[in-house]
Design a protein around this nucleic acid. Structure first.
Lengths: 235, 235
DNA sequence: ACCTGAACACCGTTCAAGT
DNA sequence: ACCTGAACACCGTTCAAGT
């Protein structure tokens, strides 16, 4: 009380910032981006935060909850402004492309979101918008859900598969020979043919291909269903 | 040498079967199916096989290779007879449905295949057949690869997402209330609307929806591309 | 060639004790 | 209320020793 009544915490330079949940999650994501998911341990994370391992447990119940929190952080990073677009196909494409951009920016994001999907309001906002867009396009509740699952499944699966594609390793360094020894071209002509494509493909472009295919397929489905309704085609 | 020259190992009943790589992989898959991926440890697997933990290392270099081996086993389980069908859309549908059946039969299969995808000939056979089918349908090498990725990504992502869908928990027991408390219906009308669908949906049916959408989308793409080629549309 | 126990360097988490 | 060290019950893997 001697040094000023309104004086708050002194801004001393050597001062350690207080441990908070957001700070923990932020640092955990940093570590995961840098060292991969295996590189993150409670003990190591604590060390990076200059704190004993057990301090973490004052802000997070356990490691699983920590990873769920990181997944939530990632989902909150998605730019959702694009889903306001008038044309529902543009809105869907914009929204899922934003999603995919986050997945490309954080190599382990797809893994985290798939294994520890949080059910918090923040994490459900993208789902709500996706379903709303599909409902507005004309799908009933069940088909909207199935269409949403197709889009989410594709997006997560594509990112994750790319991330660990075994064929992706082959073109690095002198890997080509190893690939051809393991997969004799006469038995695997089409895989062999496609190895160079894998090496220098643009992941964003490859993602867009499938996204467009799914959106076109959904449009066709909508057209067919509405025709069946109009003409009462008995079959 | 005293008890018969041609006599092989005595078939004594208490006799322990010899440790072999296939036997190890088989038992590992059993454990994973039963206890989940976290339930498998080298030490526990060894215990189930009535052997010291270190014996495993005579047949498998490390845990990662073990999981890769299990993933390979799973990929080998896929029934590939359907891809012989004349119509390429039927062939693709049959092949990927077989794939999906394996994923449904083993709850952790999608996870294993996505995180430890093996690049062995056995694991690449399905890829070769998928690419061959798409090439025969009329896609060039690059589009065939992108279409294949769309199908694989969707299949793995769908299975994995279903497996850990946070909304799936809500209908178990008295979970509905928890769901509605966490996600206020006025903020999440479309998610709320769809919760009952999630609870009693047929996963095979939900998968087929997206599979058909993708195949239809691919058909449309093929049609459009061939038209562009025929009429030389300048744009 | 295959198996083994002891040991090493890690984990996540609990608990009782500090301030 | 928050932090801490010691401890517990596990891990994967190495190594030298057995047969």
């Amino acid at each position: 009380v001697g040094d000023g009544a309104r004086a708050s915490v002194p801004p001393g330079e050597g001062r350690r910032e207080p441990l908070t949940r957001p700070r923990i999650l932020e640092r955990a994501l940093e570590m995961i981006d840098r060292d991969g998911i295996e590189g993150l341990s409670m003990r190591r994370l604590a060390a990076e935060l200059d704190v004993s391992a057990m301090s973490l447990y004052n802000h997070v119940p356990n490691k699983e909850a920590l990873l769920e929190g990181v997944a939530e952080t990632l989902l909150a990073e998605i730019d959702l402004t694009g889903v306001e677009l008038e044309d529902w196909t543009d809105a869907i494409r914009a929204g899922f492309r934003s999603f995919h951009e986050v997945l490309l920016a954080h190599p382990q994001a797809a893994f985290l979101i798939q294994t520890k999907p949080p059910a918090t309001p923040g994490a459900m906002r993208p789902v709500e918008l996706s379903l709303a867009t599909l409902r507005r396009a004309g799908f009933d509740a069940q088909n909207a859900l199935e269409a949403h699952w197709a889009l989410v499944g594709y997006t997560l699966g594509h990112a994750m598969f790319q991330q660990s594609n075994p064929l992706g390793d082959f073109e690095r360094g002198e890997g080509t020979l190893a690939a051809e020894r393991a997969l004799p071209p006469e038995d695997f002509p089409h895989v062999t043919e496609v190895l160079p494509e894998i090496a220098n493909c643009d992941l964003g472009h490859a993602y867009d291909f499938g996204l467009n295919v799914i959106v076109e397929g959904l449009k066709a489905k909508l057209r067919k269903d509405s025709q069946r309704g109009l003409f009462q085609v008995a079959d």
